[in-house]
Design a protein around this nucleic acid. Structure first.
Lengths: 197, 197, 197, 197
DNA sequence: AGCTAACCGAGACGGTACGTCCCGTCTTGCA
DNA sequence: TGCAAGACGGGACGTACCGTCTCGGTTAGCT
């Protein structure tokens, strides 16, 4: 008995409506801030009923996260041979995306904000974030890191610096910062240094 | 001519109303989340007209930041003699506050969220954050750090790790993490290592 | 091609909400004065969102006028054979309604007040008033009135006396007054008198 | 000792403040409607504290009634020899005032409205109105009117017509109307007609 | 070919909070 | 004590969105 899952009766989900909603979200986010976005505005912009949004998503954060994931390219970190170079390259790419043409940075900030205010959204956003953390872990794993606890802390420090600057805006996300992060990461990982703990 | 600064005409600001509002905010935050807080509820809880809130603050974020600043003890970082120890002590104290009895952590998350959504609030929150960054810089300044750029990045990495974990909640803010941060900071600062840049 | 008038899209107006609002208005007006009435109280009493009121009416005056029109019985003026008798009967009925059980008088006063304070409401109230004026004109038209100008003035004098007493309250709206109005109207209409203008 | 009434201690009432308030009211009423008037605006316009208004008046209606009484000329009705002529002259003057340069009409409408909404103001406004009614009674008293009840009704009909048109605005307050009122009043008073009641 | 269920757009619904306006009262310091 | 200034507790305003619900109409797969 291969498959008892009956194909559900009734009309199928409209692909047109789905992409219209996702694109309307991004289109509105180009014109106004995340805070000014509303599900009503998305529905209106997309030429779609509000129910069609709430049928498939929970709220605007959910929609935007979906839209972002859809359009987001994975940050590709070329292998440079050294941990310093790999980290530097990873964050140069990350920073470029955050500063990017379509203003991914502001949207990320909005989603992070929503994750703080909406307990139901938090795990969904955390899952999205986890993919990025995993990517950085993958980069660091190319090189010997003595301790799991230190590796975890290092990932948090590196991404933390990124988010901290992104959210507070007290300093720019420049290639120079990426370089410095690479250098400090290399030292912190104890590249070539006997750990004397 | 002693002082030409005339005392402004009219009734003085009521200190009772001010503290009633600040305490009502904190009282409500003990019972419900920051997202569920509203200016109307604060006014009602404080037995105060809404206008009295809007006369002196812009929104709930402003009120809560004020209340938090009022009640916040400065994180005291004892001198331990080593950079590692100082950083470790600083973040042990910081983590303790964030986990603290009155739930400072969730409130900080709410304020950070608000700073992302309300452009007018962002600089006020950034100023609050800046006092904490300055404190950490003061701690690091006890020890030789070669480069201003690296110092700045190190501060962002350390506080970034704190905020990153606080906001995402993927890992705990334990003394063990504080210890690891101290260790990595010491290495990153190049303690005893010739910088070969 | 029978009918191109498409039914408008979307959910239909709720008849329950409409009558709940109108009845809540009247219910509240039985307990408190028109001035003390508020749209918020109506919404609360009716178990309805405020927006549902503002979607279909402009303010409380609009709602109350609607409610009044809904429940108002047309004043029926029996034919008595003479102008004096007809006018007398008309105003006996009118006075009875104004003194009436459900306190139509106070509500009329409130609406008249609103018409003075709200330029947008004035024409709606005037239209309501016009139906009453037309009724009286109909009564007078049963009898020969020499001049349109005098007819118009007579109508204004008769209704004016009613409103003047209703609004100022310096004299009662008794059947005796209705009788006197009938008598004066008959004389003013020049019953049996050659007009020598 | 005839008078123990001590002259009250403290500063005397400021005449400047009083006239400033009354003139500010009229000045504002020239620019905006009665409904848009507020005590706060009067105080601001007069350069006066709000308390100074509330010390001597109850609300804006009280102030405006005072200002109106202050500036109002009594309507003078010349004796013409006939009841018709006297009434006509009286209402020509009355209409002229209502249409007048400073827009007395709209202000009267506002006060009448207020009298409906504010039970405390109603008797004060009624007293003001009574002076006008007494004036018209005086005019009619020059001529023989058979019955007190009819005299009273006639006054209400005449003033009623005036107020009815003023409040509803369905017809103009022209000299022609004054003439018609005079004519109908004369007939109603039974000028030369044997009352056969 | 019809049935039926789920989809779709539109938009009204009950509800919450917003930020503003004005009320009438009170406090403050000066005249 | 009066006065200008203006903060205070309070109440209602009219608006914006929330997330849910009804409409009438459309689009499939299953009988």
């Amino acid at each position: 008995m291969p498959d008892t899952a009956r194909s559900p009766a009734g009309r199928k989900r409209s692909a047109e409506a789905r992409v219209a909603i996702l694109e309307a979200s991004l289109s509105l986010l180009r014109r106004r801030s995340y805070a000014e976005l509303s599900c009503e505005a998305i529905a209106s912009e997309a030429g779609v009923g509000k129910q069609t949004i709430y049928r498939w998503w929970n709220n605007k954060a959910d929609v935007v996260l979906d839209a972002l994931t859809e359009h987001a390219r994975a940050v590709t970190a070329p292998e440079t041979g050294t941990l310093e170079g790999d980290v530097r390259a990873f964050f140069e790419a990350t920073f470029r995306l955050a500063r990017g043409t379509r203003g991914t940075g502001p949207v990320l900030k909005g989603l992070m904000a929503e994750a703080q205010l909406d307990a139901a959204f938090a795990p969904r956003f955390a899952a999205f974030i986890e993919t990025r953390r995993a990517a950085l872990r993958g980069v660091l794993a190319r090189h010997p890191i003595p301790d799991e606890r230190e590796l975890s802390a290092l990932v948090d420090m590196l991404f933390g610096a990124f988010w901290y600057r992104l959210l507070l805006g007290h300093g720019p996300l420049t290639p120079a910062l990426a370089a410095t992060l690479g250098k400090l990461a290399a030292r912190g990982a104890g590249a070539g240094i006997p750990i004397t703990d």
